[in-house]
Every structure is written in C-alpha cells, then in structure tokens.
Design a binder for these strands. Structure first.
Lengths: 332, 332
DNA sequence: TTGTAGGCGTTATCAC
DNA sequence: GTGATAACGCCTACAA
C-alpha cells in the first residue's frame, strides 16, 4: 500500500541513494534524473517515513512547542502561528504538555529530547526563562527559540514585543485623556512581561509629571478572577482611580465585571484598558481598549527562527498596536 | 550521553532482548532479572527512542489530534484533556494542522498516517463527520476515535454529550420562567451538534404547548459576529423575543453585545443563554446562563478510548450541566 | 525463562 | 553524477 523509497528507485530506474538525493534536495543530480525521480515519487504518492529518517539521519522533521499559559487564546494563537510555519517547512508540530501541572519540567523535556529527538523547540513564557530548561537544552545542543524571554537575552534566538513601550504607550494615552489616578493590575510575577509592563506604566506616570501612587498597583495572575479582585481592592480605596489598566485581557474583563457588579459606570466613572487583545476584548461591554500583541505572529516567527539557523542568535521584535475604544473616557 | 538499550543490557548483564521484554512489560522475565534491568534503566536514565521503536515495531507511541474549531477555548480544552490522558499512557500528542485552511484534509491526514504512523487519531467536529477522512482511516486500518460525531454512529468509538437533551433542558428552563417567545441562534451548519441542538429547542417548544415561530430561529456560525448579527435581526422583529438562546458562548456574547449596543436592558427586557460555558460566559455582563459541556473531559475520554481498544466500538456519553445565572429573568 | 539473527526505511560514507 | 554498503536503535520471530 504505502510506497517505500526502494519502490521509487525501481520505478525511476535509479538507485535508492539517488532518490534520497532528490528528496533531500542535494546537489549532483542530473536534471533529467531528478525529473524522473520526481515523477516516480508523485506517481507512487511516496512520502518518506519520519521514523526511518530520524533514525538514520540527523533530522526528525518534528519540532516541539512547550506552551503553558493561563489564556487559551494565547496558547491557541501561538500554536496556530507555529503550525502554519511548520506546514510550510514540511515539519510536524508536537504539542507538549504544558508546564502548569508538570512536576519536573526539565526532566519532562529531557524525555522529549531523548525520545522524539525534535529538530528544535519553541519555549513560551514562563518556560522561556526557566533556568533548568535552558541549561538542559544548551547542554544537549538542541536548537531552541524563545518567545518573550526576560533573562539571558542573546542566549538563543527570540521573538518578542516591547512590553515596556507598549505599557508606556497605553498609560500615556490614558494620561492624555485627562486621567491622573490610573490603577494598574500587574501580571503573574513569574512572567517576565509582567515586570516589563509595570515598568512601562511607572515610567509613563513619572514622565507625565506625577509621582506614582503605589497603592494604585495591584498584583494579578493574568486571569479573570485576579482582575476582578484587584478591581475590588482599587475601587474600595478612599480615592479610587478613574482608570484601570490591567496587564491582560482576562484581567481587564475581570475589572469590568467587578465595576459592573459594584454599579460603577464604565466608561462614565471608570475607564478600563487591557493588554493582549484576544477576542475577549470585544466580548465584554463596553469593548476594551487594549494593547494588541499579535500572538499568532509570535508563534510563526518563533518557528521561522528555528528554520532560519542564523550564525548569531537572531532577536526579532514584533510591533504592537494600540487599540483605543469607547471604554476610555475623560474622568468626570 | 544518551543511553541505548545495549548499554542497559551490558550494565544489567543480560541480553538486549531481555531489556526489551522488561520495557514492554512482557511475561517470562524472572522477577530479579526484571529488577536488575529496571535498576540499570534508571541508573542510566534510559529512555527508548520513539523513532527506532516505531520503525521496528508496531507502535509509534504517538497519537494525533485533528482539531478545528472556531473557539480557542474548545481547542485548548480538548487538547488539554487528551494530552493528560496521553501523559498517563506515555504517549506523545501531535497537534495536527486544523482543517480550516487545509485544502484537502484527507490527503493531509494520509500524509500524517504515512509519515508519522500514529497509533491512533482523535477527530473533533466537524472532521468527525468528514466522509473522506473516515473512509481513509477505515481503509488504512488506523484506529480512531470521534468526538461528537453526527453520522455513521457505531463506525468508531466516540464520546459526546446529548446535545438535543441539553438544548431541550435549557429551552424548558426558559419556558418555565415564563418566556414564550424564545429566539434561537443555531450553530454552524457544518457541525452535527448544530442540528441536534436545534432539534432540542424545537422539541421543547413543541412540548411546551406552543407552536415554534420559525422567524425566531437564526443561523449563526458559532462565532461572536454571527451571534451579534442574529441578535440584531431578532431584536428588529415587530414582536421581538424576550429571551435568546444561542448555540455557543461566543454567539451568546455577541447577542449580549448587540443588546447592549441597542440599549436593550439585560436581563430586564431580554434574557440570554448560551452553550458550552467556556470561561467566556463569566466575562460578559451579566454572566451568561449556559449549558456546560465538559470539553476537557471529552478530550480525555477520546484518548482513553484509543487506549482502551475494546472489541466493540465503545460509545461514551458525558453528562452536561445546566448553569442558570442572573441573566435569566421572567419577561416584563 | 533467555538469547540470536534479521530487518524496519532511510541517510551517511565512500567507492566508482 | 551515481551506486553499493553499512549503520541508526529497537522489535519480531525463532531457537535454545
């Protein structure tokens, strides 16, 4: 049923090795030989077996994506981007167990490397900054690309957005609309982006001439519940903020829900902004203003960097977008 | 660096074949021989290579998940459930390109089968009802499990919820709260669940004593935009519904957004219910009432069925849950 | 209960 | 340019 390389060789009237040369796009094959082989390949509908290739050669035609994130949208988008690039490259994508419930992630990844021998690995936050994992991969010599790393920059190719600049821009936009007391809900402390975004917020407040009120900063965990809790804390203040900027869309949705529950009119009495712009941003009411991070592009570029194999670890910055919606109003 | 089976054999003082026996849990290994081998395995941190196993034996220790869905939450949850079960079984999960942008899916899956030789495949809607794919898999003898199939029931093991009963229950709940004109937004026609849910709605309306008003039924596509559009159409009616039941949460969120935009108070003038209960349901305001479908369980059970290998294709029904929230009120 | 021989489908090496 | 031949790491069949 399934054709093997020897079948192709027989049909094309050449040796197995020559077929292999054509398949791997090697030089030193006469054009018409190449053509004959290609015809035989498509006539037999031949597709090389990955296991055999992996065993005999240096490539496995598989890459792995280590993705753990509180937001399904994020995971979906990264994965979708990565698999698109993989499809172009004729490589398969292995979705590897997320870290959240993994006891020893480095051990888990070691097993992945030993057993599946992936040609490369994509790491998303917070694993992109997991020292044990980075050490393992470096030691084993497995090529890897990191999405939004926060530490050991330059250790590997990476793709990211300028989180500080993005948070700065959004904060600035809020300030320019007249807000003076802007609450901030930071992200999960384990993610490098959280600190970067907080820095952007603080810098913008500072550059705006005001002193940051640390009471206006609450720590969240990137999820809906922590956003709602942070909003409750902020709105309980004697002098509550007129705007709240949350470090993720899920948290911003939580802020919105808390405001609604308390009868705080949005945007009349409170403006709400988020970060990431998954589709969630338009599901809530009123629609959120957000910093849009093109997550799918991050995944695509991550895979692309894996295939690029530049001499120097390439760092690619992706542009973010500021999307201001009706939820932003001047304070009353 | 990486140990091979021959290393283990040497250390344990047995033959390669005996190590293989222990690894594959075969009988006829003396307890203390087994123990010696196991010690060597963990001492060397040996992990069998998948490619070699796949090439030599009948298993590849990989299964593939074909998942295409408009909802990232759905994809994430199914995948998460499946990978949990796979982790328990020591099998790897391949996330295969979603169908949405695949020209010839059957061809794509044929390539997957030829190249990766997965031990089994999980199909989610709408691929669970793709005749070409089903024929291919059956012909090739690749074990497969379907999530929520609508056709050729019994062809393969399957896992599903009773969509008709679920829609019936929700419609009944709305009726019992006094609603008489209940709008319905059906799902993407390509999904078997869409028709099943519509049937449940119609049956409940019929059993409630009323005649269904077909003008109250609008076709959506499972996404936010189509939900909003359907709501607009319904609210434009001379005699608009007092409740709208959408066949997915994304569409329900769209309904809610449209109502808000038009100044239709929810739940005072309009009740909104959805289907699926991703986290989205609580992000909107007011929180949606939904039929909760445990999607993660669907994924887990799908993988489980693949490993179970019963003589007869096993059909497992998963219970749904009715979650009624504040958004449901009696009509004014 | 254990070991030996052979081969899975491809790539790498080295002649021709 | 092209073709033998030997691996790759493991499992299957069969022998002991």
């Amino acid at each position: 049923m399934r054709a093997r390389i020897s079948d192709v060789a027989r049909v094309a009237g050449v040796s197995i090795k020559t077929v292999s040369r054509v398949l791997n796009n090697e030089r030193y094959v006469r054009p018409d030989t190449r053509r004959r082989v290609e015809e035989a390949v498509s006539a037999l509908n031949f597709r090389p077996n990955h296991a055999a290739r992996s065993l005999a050669g240096r490539r496995s035609y598989q890459i792995a994506l280590i993705c753990d994130n509180p937001s399904p949208y994020y995971v979906y988008a990264v994965q979708d981007g990565a698999r698109r690039r993989c499809a172009e490259a004729g490589v398969r994508l292995i979705a590897q167990p997320y870290a959240a419930d993994t006891a020893d992630l480095a051990e888990e990844i070691a097993a992945l490397v030993d057993q599946a021998a992936p040609d490369g690995i994509i790491l998303t936050p917070p694993v992109s900054d997991d020292a044990a994992v980075l050490a393992l991969l470096t030691e084993r010599g497995v090529p890897f690309v990191r999405v939004s790393p926060g530490t050991q920059v330059g250790l590997s190719p990476a793709v990211f957005i300028d989180n500080r600049a993005a948070a700065y821009a959004m904060t600035e936009a809020l300030l320019s609309r007249g807000h003076r007391r802007i609450g901030f809900v930071s992200g999960h402390p384990r993610y490098a982006a959280s600190a970067q975004r907080l820095t952007g917020y603080l810098d913008a407040i500072g550059d705006g001439g005001g002193a940051a009120d640390l009471g206006l900063i609450k720590e969240g965990r990137f999820d809906f519940a922590s956003g709602a809790a942070a909003a409750d804390a902020l709105l309980d203040l004697a002098d509550p903020p007129t705007a709240i900027f949350a470090s993720s869309d899920d948290m911003a949705a939580g802020v919105l829900a808390a405001a609604h529950r308390r009868g705080v009119a949005v945007p009349a009495r409170l403006s709400v902004a988020g970060f990431d712009d998954t589709d969630l941003a338009r599901s809530v009411w009123p629609p959120l203003s957000t910093v849009r991070q093109p997550v799918g592009v991050l995944g695509w570029v991550a895979a692309d960097l894996l295939f690029a194999a530049a001499p120097e670890p390439e760092q690619r910055e992706i542009a973010f977008e500021l999307v201001m919606r009706e939820s932003i109003a001047a304070p009353g």
